[in-house]
Simulated scan of single mutants.
Amino acid sequence: MNKSELIEQIAKRSGLSLAGSRRALDAVLASVSEALSEGDRVQLVGFGTFKITERNSREGRNPKTGEVIQIPASKTPSFTAGAELKKAVNGR
């Protein structure tokens, strides 16, 4: 499912117009992104938790030359599925 299809589903289930559904989805995504950029975690009970995890710096290899390179530390978004989402995916 892509974003347009998701917007159509939101409109169908909520009774909102397509434009209203698009604004609602964009607002949710912007709010999650903003919260994560501020270091907060976003927990949607039953669905899952979005958070930022930190990766340590480490050594890697350039696959083309085999040269050892230093990969810098970084932050990355992560998602942990909630119980209800896991049940839905597993058909329970």
Score class of each variant (00 low, 15 high):
Asn90Pro: 08
Glu84Leu: 13
Ala88Lys: 15
Arg92Gln: 13
Lys12Cys: 06
Asp40Asn: 14
Gly20Leu: 06
Asn62Ile: 03
Ala11Asp: 06
Glu34His: 04
Ser37Gln: 13
Ile7Tyr: 02
Ile69Asn: 06
Leu6Lys: 08
Lys75Thr: 01
Ala73Gly: 05
Gly66Pro: 00
Gly20Gln: 03
Asn56Gln: 12
Arg22Asn: 14
Glu84Tyr: 10
Thr80Leu: 04
Gly39Leu: 07
Gln9Asn: 07
Lys75Val: 07
Glu84Ile: 12
Thr53Cys: 09
Gly91Gln: 15
Gly39Cys: 08
Ser37Trp: 00
Ser4Gly: 07
Leu16Asp: 07
Glu8Phe: 03
Leu6Ile: 13
Ser33Ala: 13
Ala30Asn: 00
Arg13Tyr: 08
Thr65Tyr: 14
Val42Asp: 02
Leu18Arg: 13
Arg61Trp: 11
Glu38Ile: 02
Pro63Cys: 04
Gln43Glu: 14
Pro72His: 04
Glu8Trp: 01
Glu84Asp: 15
Ala24Cys: 08
Asn56Ser: 14
Ser74Arg: 03
Glu8Cys: 04
Gln70Gly: 03
Ser74Ala: 15
Thr76Gly: 04
Ser78His: 13
Leu25Arg: 00
Arg61Val: 07
Glu38Val: 14
Leu18His: 07
Ala19Pro: 02
Leu6Cys: 09
Met1Val: 14
Leu16Asn: 04
Gly20His: 02
Ser78Asn: 11
Arg92Tyr: 09
Glu54Leu: 05
Ala35Met: 08
Lys64Phe: 04
Gly39Thr: 02
Val45Ala: 13
Arg58Pro: 08
Ile69Trp: 05
Phe79Tyr: 06
Leu29Met: 10
Gly20Thr: 01
Ala83Phe: 08
Pro63Thr: 03
Glu5Arg: 12
Leu6Ala: 08
Asn2Ile: 06
Ser78Leu: 11
Gly15Lys: 12
